[in-house]
Amino acid sequence: MIRVKMVPTSITFIALLSACAHTGQVEEGRRYFNRMINEFGIEPEAEHFSCMIDLLSRAGKLGEAKRLIETMPFTPGMAAWATLLGACRKHGKMELAEIAANELLQLEPTNATPYVVLANMYTDFGKWEDVARVRKLMRDRGIKKLPGCSWLELHNRVHVFVAEDNSHPMMKEIHDYLDWMVLKIKHAGYVPDGDETGEGEKETRLRHHSEKLAVAFGLLSTTDGAPIVVMKNLRICGDCHNAMKYISQISCRKITVRDANRFHCFERGNCSCGDYW
């Protein structure tokens, strides 16, 4: 655009900063952010700051991301703190996660997401008293986590799967297929979260997550090589994300899961998100 004398707009820089975030080009992103302000006189909006927070968070520069939030010329919104909170799960920064979660709870106290993310992090760190405290807070405030729901379209019909739901007429075949597939991907290196903690019951529950049920149904009901596209109402969990990579490799299929955050395209054992979501 600069070469042909076109003036970049605010939207141009949102796309540019987002691209830098997804490709890990931290210094490039910083330069474009500064050029936007100093060279083109564009005042950063919430979307620009969110892109920069995402860029820094993905690179593990969480302290810098927090400082950027604190220097925003307007009150940070949900997107800024939610981006930082998601990065703290990813990078294991418990103290910063608590700060981000508390800010989110101040902005939107009835939103279940920060409670759930915080409880999951406490679980990962073995802080069971804190897990109980967050869950009690949810109960006291009447906040309920939405059940995981996934669906896919096949032969002009939408098939819906809910975690722990056995109402689908093919559920026995789906569970049998999942049991077989889990054995196959374990041989390939997959370790369920339940195996890491020694909780067999937890592993069984993980197998019944809605996205696993939907993908298993899709694999059972389509021809070899056909791509699978699944939609999910919540963010895909870490165990399902890991399992999908192995399933795509074993089944030689392209599996796309559109969760609440983004598209995940699993193919040959890899995901398009680069394991950051």
Rank of each mutant, 00 (worst) to 15 (best):
I143N: 01
G60M: 02
A65S: 06
E27R: 12
G225H: 03
M231F: 09
L146C: 09
I174A: 05
F263I: 13
L85N: 01
V230I: 13
I37L: 07
S167F: 10
E47V: 06
N34K: 14
D176T: 12
E70H: 10
S210P: 03
T223I: 14
D195V: 08
L104G: 00
K245S: 10
W180S: 15
M231E: 12
I236H: 03
R268E: 15
W128R: 15
E153S: 13
W277I: 11
V229Q: 14
R3T: 08
G126R: 11
S50I: 03
P169D: 14
G269D: 04
M36K: 07
P76H: 01
M121S: 10
D275A: 00
T223S: 15
R262K: 12
E47Q: 03
T110E: 11
Q25F: 12
E108Q: 11
S57Y: 00
T197R: 14
E196H: 15
G92W: 06
Y190S: 00
F40A: 04
A188P: 02
G194E: 06
I53H: 00
T12H: 05
Q25T: 08
D176A: 12
F266Q: 03
G198C: 01
A216P: 02
S18P: 05
G148S: 07
V158Q: 15
I11N: 08
M121C: 05
E98G: 09
G142V: 11
L219S: 01
T71D: 12
K61M: 14
E211N: 09
F13V: 01
G218P: 04
L137F: 13
M244T: 07
K136Q: 15
M94N: 09
S167C: 10
L17C: 01
I69D: 08
G92Y: 04
H175I: 10
M72S: 04
T71S: 13
A214S: 07
P76G: 02
P44I: 03
M94E: 11
Q25S: 13
W151V: 02
E267F: 11
W180R: 14
S248I: 05
R135H: 09
R253M: 10
N102D: 14
G274M: 08
D275M: 07
E173F: 03
L178P: 06
A87R: 00
L107C: 00
A21M: 04
V230L: 10
A79R: 10
V158K: 15
R205H: 13
P114E: 01
L107S: 01
I37M: 15
N120T: 02
H241W: 11
E211D: 04
R205T: 11
S248N: 00
V229S: 14
M170F: 08
K186T: 13
D140C: 06
E211H: 08
V117A: 07
A65H: 06
L220R: 05
T197C: 03
P192Y: 05
A132N: 11
G200S: 12
N102E: 15
L146A: 15
I174T: 11
P8C: 07
R258V: 06
C237K: 09
E267K: 14
